[in-house]
């Protein structure tokens, strides 16, 4: 098809001089945008490698004049990063298991098992999408307190699967798996549990990996809620710890601060660059939620 070759502009448009110039301007703007996206990331990286006096010099320079790799060592020793990292990963792991098991089962049941009153049950789950979280943030905290879950990982793990949005994504995906698959299994004598664990779960790995990225980024990014729920240093996830000890810190050299920020920023960037495709697809799915 020849018509696919064009965009809004056709090859005829490119031949006009004014259009060419306009297009160049647009490209320049895009390049500027890309630059402004990459600049802060690189600044953090390079500032983490400068001597402290150089970071504080004015006007700032982009590249370091001397490379101080020992800043990263100092940053690593400044606070107990491995413990916080472990906490973040604990939260992520538990949240993911809960999401797969609890929401996976519910989505499978809603999608394939045709229980009576299914629509009403689905509605019961979905209506929570329309209640903005910050309206019940305080009672939510008090509720966790009443349940005695404060300062425990269960305070993250249990509510992790109370997400109508993830349920929606899962159900939509499982809806797309053919019924015949499960019918064949049933004829062979498989129970519902076996249908779920041996057929539905393996076939849903794409959607689970998309969810894993969502869950990971929440666990990695969320600093505010953990700072309320957890009370002790040894239980803070990474983001909260960085907020408490790096962002709010008064006496911390800027270069060390940037070194720590770079270390916190790199894992999600690497995850993103590795799983780009999943993330971009997840974004299309999640587009409805924003």
């Amino acid at each position: 098809m020849k018509s696919v070759d064009r965009g809004i502009l056709s090859s005829y448009d490119y031949r006009k001089k004014t259009n060419k110039l306009g297009f160049l301007v647009v490209i320049a703007v895009i390049v500027a945008m890309v630059g402004s996206m990459l600049y802060p990331v690189l600044t953090a990286l390079f500032n983490g490698l400068k001597a402290n006096t150089e970071v504080n010099s004015f006007p700032p320079r982009f590249l370091p004049s001397e490379w101080h790799f020992d800043n990263y060592e100092a940053g690593w020793n400044f606070m107990n990063l491995p413990v916080f990292l472990k906490n973040t990963l604990m939260i992520f792991g538990g949240n993911m298991i809960m999401t797969v098991v609890v929401l996976g089962l519910a989505a499978f049941s809603l999608s394939k098992l045709n229980v009576p009153y299914q629509r009403a049950i689905y509605f019961f789950f979905m209506i929570t999408l329309f209640i903005p979280p910050s309206t019940y943030i305080i009672p939510n905290f008090l509720n966790l307190k009443d349940l005695g879950l404060l300062n425990t990982y269960a305070a993250f793990w249990l509510p992790a699967s109370a997400s109508a949005f993830y349920l929606l994504l899962l159900k939509n995906f499982i809806d797309g798996i053919h019924h015949e698959m499960f019918e064949a299994a049933r004829i062979d004598g498989a129970s519902d549990w076996k249908c779920f664990s041996l057929i539905a779960v393996p076939l849903s790995i794409p959607i689970f990996s998309t969810l894993a990225i969502f869950v990971f980024s929440t666990a990695w990014n969320d600093w505010f809620w953990p700072s309320l729920v957890m009370h002790s240093d040894s239980k803070y996830p990474l983001a909260t710890a960085v907020y408490k000890y790096v962002i709010s810190a008064q006496r911390l050299n800027l270069n060390i601060r940037f070194a720590i920020l770079t270390m916190v920023m790199l894992p999600p960037i690497l995850v993103f660059l590795t799983f780009q495709k999943f993330i971009m697809r997840g974004l299309q799915l999640g587009g409805v939620k924003g």
Binding site: M37, W220, W223, A239, L261, P268, L283
Partner: peptide, 12 residues
Amino acid sequence: AAYLPNVIPAVV
């Protein structure tokens, strides 16, 4: 590149 800032943690 345009999506990159999205993956930077809020605290950073």
